[in-house]
Design a protein around this nucleic acid. Structure first.
Length: 446
RNA sequence: GCCGCCAUCGUCUAGGGGACUAGGACGCCGCCCUCUCACGGCGGAAACCGGGGUUCGAAUCCCCGUGGCGGUACCA
């Protein structure tokens, strides 16, 4: 099996494109085949080196490795032109200056469902002759056979008037030259397929098997865009998702096997993946499920590895202790700093929290807690818990009435890792300093 | 308009004529755990687009309708 992922570098790698790449990669790895990367840069207006770099970066981040030298479609232009000449010489293609309006006019005369047939001219764009009789059948692993009656098909334009090859010509030739056996791509290409098949046929080339993937939509069923939050692989990375979680989630967006498992590590995905089991209906990208899944992967990493990832993500160092006490509370790498950053950068400022928890009884409870902590000799999770437990008991208070003021004093907010863990990581000195600052800022009389 | 693809809980899906009182996962709701937020555990609500066939029997097969999507470029 030889498959290819052939993005056109007109922007960042979108999530839909990432899934297409993943399915190609999974199919190749599953079969022990080859995964080839081809950049379709024949659209010179929109294809830029920056965009190519973005795509490669995204694929590397996803850890989808390709097996052969990257093919740039523009590098094959000579070959495309040669084939074009041959097609023209053999009378399988012709030139015509007919414009879109001409085609429309032609159809008004011959019927809307009738495929356009032009008259050969001395110059103009090149169109491929489509026979009037018969049909081209697309054999699709996912959908079965799709039949395209030739009478409905327009003679497709395969090159510009200047002889530069167009998409449907270039793709067919490149797939053939690269000996691609399975073309796995988005469903939006399904109606291009008969055109490419016709080119292949004119060339006398063998035909690959196709697998047209259902499209990916946003949560509202519309085209996925930045409006929905993450739309590109870069967005996903910046949002703190793990590549292994993204692979797992994307694999399940449009594919599932009989086992019904949800958490499937990549090596297992490779073992189970089957193009024939890809779903036919379009899927919506639902970030909630990705978040959940990412949390599971994140917690499965182990504290040490998770710390490395969070340090790389935040650009901060020595986060180990904070990561250890935050692990079970975060879903993404990006969740960490808002939750535990106060340990390093000082309490955040939440006036509402201070108002609610540091006035009157809160102030008194905090004062008692400070006393107990100041004399505590065993500054450990257990020691802190025992000391504060005694304060709760002595005040005949609810635990939260002692712990929340403390939390607000050291973290500045009402949400943080466990209070005993937090204090033990913070250390006695820093803890007392923060309590004093909180006490001073919110006098008991206030 | 024309050509084509698709149609199971809100979402992703399992289901390939009887095993379906339609299963799982996310999300949602409730309970438990609990110092906050989470994590975890337990339980619950929630779907076969409509109509015709075929068949002893249809979520599963066929047809029609409806709806959604894609294509319809001298873009890819």
């Amino acid at each position: 099996m030889r498959v290819r992922f052939a993005p056109s570098p007109t922007g960042q790698l979108h999530i839909g494109g990432a899934r297409t790449a993943l399915y190609n990669w999974l199919a190749a790895r599953h079969a022990g085949g080859r995964f080839i990367l081809r950049i379709e840069d024949t659209d010179r207006e929109r294809s830029t080196p920056e965009n190519i770099a973005h795509i490669l970066e995204a694929l590397r981040w996803l850890e989808l490795d390709w097996d052969e030298a990257i093919v740039h479609q523009t590098d094959n232009e000579e070959r495309h032109r040669q084939v074009l000449e041959r097609l023209l010489d053999e009378g399988r293609a012709y030139r015509t200056t007919a414009t879109g309006d001409d085609v429309k006019a032609w159809k008004a005369e011959h019927g809307a469902g009738r495929g356009y047939r032009g008259t050969p001219m001395a110059d103009g764009a090149v169109r491929l002759h489509v026979p009037d009789e018969g049909a081209t059948v697309v054999h699709d692993l996912i959908r079965g056979d799709a039949v395209f009656q030739h009478e409905h098909l327009d003679d497709p334009v395969i090159a510009r008037a200047d002889g530069s090859p167009l998409f449907n010509l270039a793709v067919a030739i490149d797939d053939h030259d690269a000996e691609i056996t399975h073309v796995v791509r988005g469903e939006d290409h399904i109606s291009n397929t008969p055109k490419q098949l016709l080119v292949l046929e004119a060339l006398g080339a063998p035909k690959p098997v196709y697998a047209h993937l259902p499209l990916l939509h946003g949560p509202d069923g519309r085209k996925l865009s930045k409006r929905h939050g993450a739309a590109s692989v870069q967005d996903l990375r910046d949002a703190g998702y793990l590549p292994e979680a993204v692979r797992n989630y994307l694999a399940l967006l449009g594919w599932g096997d009989a086992d019904d498992e949800t958490l499937i590590p990549t090596d297992e995905l490779v073992k189970r993946f089957d193009l024939g089991r890809v779903s036919k209906n379009p899927a919506r990208f639902d970030e909630q499920k990705l978040r959940w899944m990412n949390g599971r992967y994140l917690r499965g990493l182990g504290t040490e590895e998770l710390t490395r990832r969070i340090e790389a993500f935040t650009g901060r160092e020595r986060l180990g202790p904070a990561v250890a006490i935050s692990e079970e509370k975060i879903q993404t790498l990006a969740d960490f700093w808002p939750l535990a950053g106060f340990l390093y950068d000082g309490p955040s400022d939440d006036p509402k929290a201070r108002e609610k928890w540091l006035a009157q009884t809160g102030h008194a409870a905090l004062t008692d807690a400070r006393l107990a902590l100041a004399e505590l000799t065993d500054w450990s999770h257990a020691g802190i818990e025992a000391a504060l437990g005694a304060v709760v008991e002595a005040r005949a208070a609810k635990p939260r009435d002692v712990y929340q003021p403390l939390r607000v004093a050291v973290a500045g907010t009402t949400v943080s890792p466990g209070i005993f863990e937090t204090l033990s990581v913070l250390g006695r000195e820093e803890t007392l300093r923060r309590i004093d600052a909180a006490l001073a800022a919110a006098p008991a009389s206030a």
